[in-house]
């Protein structure tokens, strides 16, 4: 260690924990399987969202009068504004995809089992917060899409029996969508959620390090479970290469498609057909199948059921078996969920 590093270490005591973090032994069976990169890639994408988000705040005007023009200005006048906004926009899709795939990977490897229940639950909570992130994010340009998606979204809260109308007004900050709504969504999106998600990610990674990787499930992986490589650089370099690949894809989309910006929000337009972001389309489609008094089933009961069963999963599936092909019920349920969601998305596309 050179003198400067030693001077800092004597005053901060950081070198131990930092070295421990980077020298963490990663089992060979994990290092050889790219499915294990999904969590790290989700974290990298989150960092990208934080960086581009901070940049956007420098120009964004969170007012009903100025929001649209400021986003238009970012997109067309600020040098590289199209790129920063584009990466932020497509980054949200990447985040949803990666978090979902990461969750499917941990699900099929049964890593939620004892003693990793709390890590699974923080993961479920993180996925939920990612969805809240994107929901609060797309109101901010105050364009038609954001306005109407928020109107529909808050009406969904409004359909909760008994407390719905109060919930809806709390969400909107008033009876109608307006300045208070935009301010609320902005504060939630740019202040509250980053803090919450940041803390949860730290807790999530701490839990992972505390318990270590879940045991190998295949015979070939088990043979590799007594050999280790250090987290840095062996593991980090894989994450970094794929992370750069994701960034390249986001840049490509920003360059070829650009981040969309609809016409300015217009409460009186009757020919604008509101459609949510693609990852909410399955839900948008599902809402069509619950008429009249059944509405709360779709708007409240089903989301609560899905979220509740995800949280409850480690307490229900407590057996020793971790191999997905030996667990027809959990495997079948996950495949059924995935197929239904994909199918509804395709219908609504």
């Amino acid at each position: 260690m050179n003198r400067i590093a030693r001077w800092i270490d004597e005053r901060t005591g950081l070198s131990g924990p930092v070295r421990g973090f980077f020298n963490y032994p990663v089992p060979k069976y994990v290092h050889k399987n790219l499915l294990y990169t999904l969590g790290g890639l989700t974290a990298i994408t989150f960092l990208l969202q934080v960086v581009t988000g901070i940049l956007l705040v420098f120009y964004y005007d969170p007012s009903t009068e100025g929001a649209y023009n400021s986003v238009d200005y970012i997109t067309y006048q600020v040098p590289l504004g199209w790129l920063v906004r584009g990466v932020h926009h497509y980054g949200s899709s990447a985040m949803v995809i990666l978090a979902a795939l990461h969750m499917l990977r941990t699900y099929f490897f049964s890593t939620y089992k004892k003693p990793r229940e709390i890590n699974w639950m923080t993961g479920v909570l993180l996925l939920f917060l990612v969805l809240v992130f994107s929901f609060t994010g797309y109101l901010l340009p105050w364009d038609q899409k954001g306005y109407w998606a928020t109107k529909v979204g808050s009406e969904i809260a409004g359909s909760v029996p008994w407390i719905g109308p109060t919930l809806m007004q709390l969400m909107r900050g008033g009876a109608d969508l307006g300045q208070a709504t935009l301010s609320r969504f902005y504060a939630t999106h740019a202040m509250l959620l980053p803090a919450l998600v940041g803390i949860l990610i730290v807790a999530h990674i701490f839990q992972l390090r505390f318990h270590g990787m879940a045991p190998a499930i295949t015979e070939s992986a088990k043979r590799n479970s007594k050999k280790f490589v250090p987290f840095f650089p062996h593991w980090v370099v894989t994450d970094a290469v794929f992370g750069l690949g994701i960034l390249a894809v986001l840049v490509y989309f920003s360059w070829s498609q650009g981040a969309p910006l609809d016409f300015p929000a217009d409460p009186t337009s009757s020919n604008f057909v509101p459609r949510p972001e693609w990852y909410f389309l399955f839900y948008f489609q599902a809402l069509k199948y619950f008429p009249g008094a059944l509405e709360p089933v779709a708007t409240v009961a089903i989301p609560l059921f899905i979220f509740g069963t995800m949280i409850a999963l480690p307490f229900v599936d407590r057996g020793e078996e971790r191999r997905p092909w030996k667990k027809p019920i959990t495997t079948g349920v996950a495949i059924a969920y995935t197929v239904i969601i994909l199918w509804l998305t395709v219908i609504a596309w």
Partner: peptide, 18 residues
């Protein structure tokens, strides 16, 4: 289409509806 000026939090804004 109606349009009225209403107090929207700290600003006056047009409330429009169909």
């Amino acid at each position: 289409v109606y349009s009225i000026t209403v107090a929207d939090a700290w600003r006056d804004s047009e409330r429009r509806g169909v």
